[in-house]
Design a protein around this nucleic acid. Structure first.
Lengths: 220, 220
DNA sequence: TAGATTGTTAATCGATTAACAATC
DNA sequence: TAGATTGTTAATCGATTAACAATC
């Protein structure tokens, strides 16, 4: 399916953005687009776009460019969005519940089949159209339903204890909202970390730097 | 303050992780650490750590290493965490409310001074210890309170309309949970994007790739 | 002093950009 | 056919790693 074996993470990182832009163009009724035109819209170089796409195959046509709808679907397929990976949400606190109602899992390759929390008071409450289950039932649930993905919205210490258990139960993909470093301890997993605080600290750096520059400019 | 003028984004991206690790070491009572020891714990090279830190100054001592507490504080200072940038949260839906209760803004350089939503029914409800205000009062509020940062938890279209208004009111930093591309349209802003769906799609790619590999291995 | 470890320069590696022949 | 634009190779740029003299 894929042309090359190992695609660099730099390329993978850009794929979702291509997907979003092409979705927009497609909805706007744009039929064809050249790498140059797309590069201007996205703020990239045309070279980079052609290099990126050619990691996966020759989707364009000389003298014409790329068919928007076809390319959109191709990238969706490369990203594996046609899948519906069985997914469990662990931790139904503020963040967990917000994700459950905010994210369109089904259009991004996932299907949430269970929600868990350790709090007795949460048990039975409805989240994402299903009742919250207690953590004590997690292992049985996994043995019966074979989820492949876990969304971790627990405290860091809980994640540390959970991951080895989940791995044994066959869960190999993790959307990790904790700061527990899954990949370091368990290399054979698929992990995306969402470190919101790290992101916020980078914003702090940027804003502070921006202010420093303003002050320097004022001095000159 | 900073040794060099332009620090590469690669370095900036790693700073929050250094900060977290050093915080942990400091809490565990570790007094000194060498770049080699830290590199093993963090899964980096010692070279990279020394290069990264030396962008900002010589914090270490030959033959000794780095003082954990001092380095922790230095990095916090570099990140600007001593600041309390006045911040408004726009959009008090699931995600906005989850952030308000989940993130420790005060320890990451920010101070939330106002929460806004366009829904009449939200007005007056308490979020982060303060009543939700209607969007109609946004401009007056900004003229009186001079917030510098906005957390955007609105639909994409709302963000597109809001940013030019906010910019004129002096808001130059954005924690952006929408897909509206602020930097492309307004280069002189400080922006961190949190594209949760993009992150999820990368996980989809990784999991799909992992499965493909397993299948190939089974064939051999 | 001798051993350890930094700060910094040089070498390597990978990613981005430029150029252009192939071709629709 | 002529013009446009890709796919791909070569050149450049930047980031990471290695090496080592400086020095605590």
């Amino acid at each position: 399916m894929s042309k090359r074996e190992n695609i660099s993470t730099s390329v993978i990182k850009r794929l979702p953005r291509y997907y979003r832009f092409l979705n927009g163009l497609n909805r706007d009724g744009v039929v064809r687009i050249s790498s140059r035109e797309l590069s201007i819209r996205m703020g990239l170089t045309a070279s980079q776009i052609r290099q990126d796409l050619n990691c996966f195959g020759g989707f364009g046509q000389q003298g014409y460019g790329y068919n928007v709808e076809q390319l959109f679907k191709e990238i969706g397929h490369i990203l594996g969005l046609q899948n519906l990976h069985k997914t469990i949400l662990i931790g139904a606190g503020n963040m967990g519940r917000a994700l459950a109602s905010h994210i369109d899992f089904e259009h991004h390759g996932f299907h949430v089949v269970g929600v868990f929390d350790k709090k007795e008071s949460m048990a039975g409450q409805m989240v994402h159209g299903m009742p919250v289950r207690l953590m004590s039932g997690l292992e049985d649930f996994c043995r019966n339903n074979h989820p492949e993905i876990a969304i971790l919205c627990t405290p860091d210490e809980a994640a540390e204890q959970l991951v080895p258990v989940l791995l044994k139960l066959g869960v190999m993909g993790y959307w990790n909202f904790t700061h527990y470093d899954i990949v370091a301890k368990h290399p054979d997993t698929a992990v995306q970390n969402v470190h919101l605080e790290d992101n916020l600290m980078r914003l702090s750096y940027q804003v502070s730097a921006l202010k420093n520059n303003d002050m320097k400019r004022a001095n000159i």
